[in-house]
Design a protein around this nucleic acid. Sequence first.
DNA 1: GTGTACATGTAATCCGTTACATGATTCC
DNA 2: GGAATCATGTAACGGATTACATGTACAC
Lengths: 201, 201
Amino acid sequence: MTNRQKWEEAGPPDLPATAWAVLGLLSFRGARTGYELKKWADASLRFFYWSPAISQIYAELRRLERWGLATSRTSGPQEPRAARRYTLTDAGRAALAAWADGVDDPGPPVLKHPLVLRLWLGHLATPETLRALVERHLARTRDELAEVRGALRRAERVPQWAFPLVALAWSERRHLAELALAEEMLADLARLAAAGPATGA
Amino acid sequence: MTNRQKWEEAGPPDLPATAWAVLGLLSFRGARTGYELKKWADASLRFFYWSPAISQIYAELRRLERWGLATSRTSGPQEPRAARRYTLTDAGRAALAAWADGVDDPGPPVLKHPLVLRLWLGHLATPETLRALVERHLARTRDELAEVRGALRRAERVPQWAFPLVALAWSERRHLAELALAEEMLADLARLAAAGPATGA
DNA sequence: GTGTACATGTAATCCGTTACATGATTCC
DNA sequence: GGAATCATGTAACGGATTACATGTACAC
């Protein structure tokens, strides 16, 4: 029995979220190359989920094709560049819809915050180091916020992208929250630095 | 040349963040078992970073010992349970301090939000599914917030835990922000559901 | 005496990254 | 002519998980 027959009977195949993300990327605009998908992921997917390495995108596309969820064809000799363009199959669109409309638990968000991990061990560092670390995080977050807003503006112009827009709006607010959180932490640290040495002496 | 001699010359060894997290866990209370560390991670580290699988904690502890950053001894025959207890070595404490006080970039936070990934493909789902998904996320986040607050209260009673407390306070605020974000997204979705079918018809 | 918590570890597997290798096309 | 971009892929490796296997101690 082929993979394809299997999931036609048993519902959407059990693929990692990354595979669905790549399939989703493919669902917005057809006939893309892996390279294009990577840029697309960098420009928007990464703000609320993640942008896989280019090598993994290629691997994921091959897997999708093996499952019959996508097809590819190489460009004919008349076209300029040699490239393999992938398109969703009908089966792929159906599987993606089944996945998207399922009520099964998407799972909790995964957040690894290396900055907070460092601050957790703040007693081993100087207040200046900690402050500089948070400051840099603020700067980085501001930069990223600007990028999110760029993506948001681009998405606003396309009426079909209402849901990606919701995701990006969420991401914009999340970045604003991240900034507020960092500022509050800065205040906490200042309070600690003011009180700490006195009690230690 | 041993590993130990190597990093005494060259600064803190290049270990993954997880290794430092485990070492950090060890730095708060000495002579813990892997099992205890796992519970400790579940109860607090996971709220702002991550709780490794128990098998990985054991592996990480062995690596730390191999590098001379921790030592272990098994309980003598008079003690109740057979267990291997790990302690930070002086070298381990020094390496951890060097890591914690370094100015090198901790790296950006990694956030993978499977819920937002699903909503990103919302055009493939019914408004009811989407709403239910967000609703469940809200419930889960509220539960987790309660757990964070529990950890916070426990940490408040220990004066030495000022910095873990900062991390947990950050985490509490983050959960509150996550709730607000989800509510706003719910409103966005309601707006879309109200407008969408009309334009589609 | 039975279930739960304590306690440790191995094996198989997968996910994902970085480094490497290659080559065409386009822009300046 | 040279740099940047487009484009694809392999190989080596590491990080991390799940499943499995095993056994003790304690509470009810």
